[in-house]
Simulated assay, not measured.
Amino acid sequence: MNKYCIKEFLSNTLESHESTLKETSFDKTNNEYLCEDEKLRVIYDFDSYVRQNFDQRLLPASPDAIYVGNKKLYFIEFKNQNPSDIDKSQMKRKFESGTKILKEELLNGFY
C-alpha cells in the first residue's frame, strides 16, 4: 500500500461498509430510496461504520455516507424533507463530528 494514498488506506479500513448511494439513501420511516444512483460504485456507509465502532448509547452524530475521490473526501447526508425545514445546526454537528471521526479514528494509522 502506498503510504501517501488516503483513498487506498480508507478503502482498506472501510471495506466492510462499502455501499451505493441508493443503498445509503434508504429512508426506513417512509420505506423509500431518496436517491436511485448506483453508478458511483464506491461509497461507504458512514453510519454503519459509526454503529459498529462506537458505544450504542453514545453514538456521535455522523453523515450518512462518505465518498473518497481522487483528491477530495465528500460527506453525504440524505434528508427527506423540505430544504427550509432542515435543522442547520444539526447538519453542522454531523459534519463536524464526521470530520473528527475521520481525523481521530479512521486516519489514526495513516502516515
Rank of each mutant, 00 (worst) to 15 (best):
D55F: 04
E23L: 10
L73T: 08
H17P: 00
F78G: 00
L58Y: 11
D45S: 03
S19N: 10
F95S: 02
R93N: 11
G109M: 04
K92Q: 06
F75P: 00
E18W: 04
F95L: 09
Q56H: 11
F75Q: 05
Q56R: 10
K22T: 01
L40S: 10
N70R: 11
L14C: 03
D85R: 05
F9W: 08
K79T: 00
K103E: 09
S84Q: 11
I6A: 14
T99C: 12
R93E: 09
G69I: 09
I86R: 05
D27T: 04
F110I: 12
D87H: 03
T20L: 06
Y33M: 03
E96A: 10
E38R: 13
N70S: 05
N30D: 03
I43G: 00
S16K: 11
K7L: 11
L40M: 07
E23V: 11
E105C: 03
K94P: 12
F46R: 03
F78Q: 01
Q81E: 09
K100D: 14
Y44W: 13
V50L: 03
E105M: 03
S16F: 01
Y33Q: 04
R51W: 06
Y4D: 08
Q90N: 04
C5D: 15
D55Y: 07
F75I: 12
K103L: 13
M91Q: 06
K103H: 07
S25W: 01
C5S: 13
S97R: 09
L59S: 11
Y44M: 14
F95K: 02
E15D: 12
K3P: 12
E96F: 10
Y44A: 12
K88A: 02
D55M: 09
L34N: 10
R93F: 06
I66C: 15
I76G: 02
S19K: 09
Y49T: 07
A65S: 15
G98H: 13
K94R: 15
A65K: 02
K71E: 08
V50N: 06
D47R: 02
Q81A: 05
I66H: 12
M1A: 08
Y67S: 09
L10P: 08
S11K: 14
N70L: 05
L59I: 07
A65E: 01
F26P: 01
Y111I: 11
P60E: 03
M91S: 04
G98A: 13
S89Y: 05
